[in-house]
Amino acid sequence: MICKDRVVAVTGSGRGLGRAHALKFARQGALVVVNDLGIARDGTGEATASPAEEVVKEIEALGGRAVASPHDIATEDGAEGLIATALEAFGRLDVLVNNAGFLRDRMLINLSEDEWDAVMRVHLKGHFLPLKHAGRHWRAESKAGRPVDARVINTSSGAGLLGSVGQGNYSAAKAGIVGLTLVASAELGRYGVTVNAIAPSARTRMTEDVFGETMARPAQGEFDAMAPENVSPLVVWLGSADSRAVTGRIFETDGGRICVMDAFRHGPVIDKGARWDPADVGAAVRDLLAQTPEPEPVYGAT
């Protein structure tokens, strides 16, 4: 019960990873706002509250408390409505898990502007706006002298950290979430808020075409390394009071693995102390590259 009575809002929690997070938080004592539009995995189709409502029923069957949120968190009103739902239902907000997203995969030269914009909207804007409104609430609480011990867990991806062939829009959005996480961690820390991100791998309807045969379920009794439920324990811990010293970090996680990503850091440097001549730059760059490890390959590269 490491999150007992903490109020948690999880976006995109009607299915997949979000559903697993919502259920795990509930099992750990949290009060949960289940947010989902109920649309198709590519973001099309009519919105329906049924997936979120089904998860609420599952939580209530466990003896927990939850409410459904039908808000489109990639809009200003929707993001504000998500935070308001938590405050109206439970009187507070302690944890925001930004998880909602969908795919529009295409090679770059075939990628349409609409496919680019749609993925940027749901992933990057859909992280920014809930984070903005949650941050405003926590700032107001802090300035009013009320103690804040809040958490934000964003959802990036290995595609955002290393790139993924055929997913230029998704990779760019997920890389943007890493940058947003670092900035939010620095800006919101003064109000008692930590901000971290995960880069998960799991079997969901969004990834079934990406991973192919590796998504197959194992034989009965064997550990299912691709189950979305494997990711949720890290998310729940990051949402707990115990994680208050951890912020601005990116964790890759799948199966039984947790990896702290060693993101961009200053590496070897050559300082000439004067302006470079272009003819001299090549030798300097080759020298620097010889002192650094090769970058890890882009997912799907041959």
Rank of each mutant, 00 (worst) to 15 (best):
residue 187 E to W: 09
residue 245 A to Y: 12
residue 149 D to G: 12
residue 212 G to F: 05
residue 164 S to N: 15
residue 216 A to W: 12
residue 238 L to Q: 02
residue 185 S to V: 07
residue 179 G to V: 07
residue 147 P to E: 15
residue 233 P to N: 06
residue 193 V to R: 02
residue 188 L to S: 05
residue 238 L to P: 07
residue 214 T to H: 10
residue 202 A to I: 00
residue 204 T to K: 00
residue 166 G to K: 08
residue 192 G to C: 07
residue 214 T to V: 14
residue 150 A to F: 11
residue 172 A to W: 05
residue 177 I to H: 01
residue 147 P to C: 14
residue 236 V to T: 11
residue 163 G to T: 01
residue 143 K to E: 15
residue 164 S to E: 14
residue 169 N to R: 05
residue 203 R to H: 13
residue 237 W to F: 14
residue 205 R to C: 03
residue 196 N to E: 04
residue 149 D to V: 11
residue 214 T to A: 14
residue 145 G to E: 08
residue 185 S to Q: 09
residue 155 T to S: 09
residue 244 R to F: 08
residue 232 S to M: 02
residue 182 L to K: 15
residue 232 S to I: 05
residue 198 I to R: 00
residue 232 S to K: 02
residue 221 G to V: 08
residue 188 L to E: 00
residue 166 G to W: 12
residue 152 V to M: 12
residue 154 N to P: 02
residue 150 A to C: 10
residue 176 G to H: 09
residue 237 W to M: 06
residue 170 Y to L: 11
residue 150 A to L: 09
residue 183 V to E: 11
residue 240 S to Q: 05
residue 229 E to F: 05
residue 187 E to M: 08
residue 163 G to C: 07
residue 242 D to I: 00
residue 158 G to L: 15
residue 237 W to N: 01
residue 198 I to W: 00
residue 173 A to K: 00
residue 160 G to P: 04
residue 201 S to E: 05
residue 165 V to C: 13
residue 168 G to W: 02
residue 161 L to M: 12
